[in-house]
Design a protein around this nucleic acid. Structure first.
Lengths: 198, 198
DNA sequence: TTGGTTAAGATACTGGTAGTAGCTTAAAAG
DNA sequence: CTTTTAAGCTACTACCAGTATCTTAACCAA
């Protein structure tokens, strides 16, 4: 009953995911992954060239498959808050935290960095574009303000909050601040009155 | 001629700064700092509890003392671009890069994290507030839009660029994009026409 | 079924580094 | 001149990434 090929690979990735969740990327060791997968370190190195590569693969492996539904609350503010809250929930997860640790660790490896960055981008942008497109059709937003930079500004600022404040989830008051002081004024310039939360 | 006290401490910090510049934080070792300072590792550990603590102290030690002059180009756009360019220049320095490595490394140490974050914040905000205050007095900006969040939005986005794109300096086209697509529209909503770069 | 090929498993090793310990000795202080 | 303090030196532990080697199980082709 010695595993081979895909079955073994999955077992290793699964073990790595569990380690990422339990101890994070920094404290994950190749030995611990091997032990948990019931195999040996060199077997892992036959498939991935480094700890970082393994963990990136593990991260990808645990991503949910289907595309996420963009929220549709009827207002741009509601949609934006929903999207940003969702992003915050994901980022404050152990896996989200691990991803940030990985990102920090591979800053000097342009290739892997691009991999991860694409992952991050793909995950986020389309939801914002959908939500903004709806706001445009509602007349809440002028079409010409919909640029990639503006579409991602809220998540970008959220990411910065994590970088500066560490691993804890960002409070919802900060999310509201980002939406009400930056995202909405930017998207609805002059078109709709600025809303302030209760 | 054995050094003691402050003289020795300065020599160690100086050595650490030079190592940070030459090899960065990740590849800086306590042995290399000790060797460069002409002392021994345990002497360092008598003063700082860890590699991270030493490097934070070294970073602070090399900071220029006096307050920086805020730019005054006559327009908010010029001032913003100048400030953002200055921040970019600093962040793309070896020392700036080292600071980001340190920041990434101490994410699970709240106390040190706050230390560094305060450092970062103090460095940046006042310039933006000055520049925006001038814009208010010029009538370019409405006073009520001047909030901490808006004041730091450009540097926050720049920091995010570094996190996603790695160690290389961010191109000036991106700086202009941040200023023209985010900062100016936010601050001058409806007050002044949006300018697009040549 | 058999014999060859591939890859998994076990184990041990190298090299590097954070942090510690204990002793020796120079400098300061009285 | 004696005592105290702290610097210098050296050796050590513990940990971990990555490598190497040899044995053995699974798979495959005939």
């Amino acid at each position: 009953m010695r595993r081979r090929g895909a079955a073994l690979e999955e077992a290793i990735l699964q073990a790595a995911v569990e380690e990422l969740i339990e101890v994070g990327y920094r404290r994950l060791t190749m030995d611990s992954v091997a032990a948990r997968a019931g195999t040996a370190k060199n077997v892992i190195y036959r498939r991935w060239p480094s700890r970082a590569a393994l963990c990136i693969a593990a991260y990808r492996a645990q991503l949910p498959t289907g595309a996420e539904q963009a929220p549709d609350t009827g207002s741009l503010r509601g949609d934006a808050l929903a999207l940003l809250t969702r992003a915050n929930d994901r980022m404050s997860t152990p896996i989200g935290r691990a991803l940030r640790e990985i990102l920090a660790d591979i800053q000097s490896d342009p290739e892997r960095l691009r991999e991860i960055r694409d992952q991050i981008s793909r995950a986020g942008v389309s939801g914002w574009l959908t939500v903004m497109a709806r706001a445009v059709s509602r007349g809440e937003v002028a079409p010409e303000v919909v640029t990639p930079r503006v579409a991602t500004v809220a998540v970008d600022l959220l990411r910065n909050e994590y970088a500066l404040n560490g691993a804890n989830a960002i409070p919802s008051s900060v999310l509201a601040e980002i939406v009400d002081e930056v995202f909405l004024p930017l998207t609805t310039r002059g078109q709709a009155p600025r809303r302030t939360p209760g």
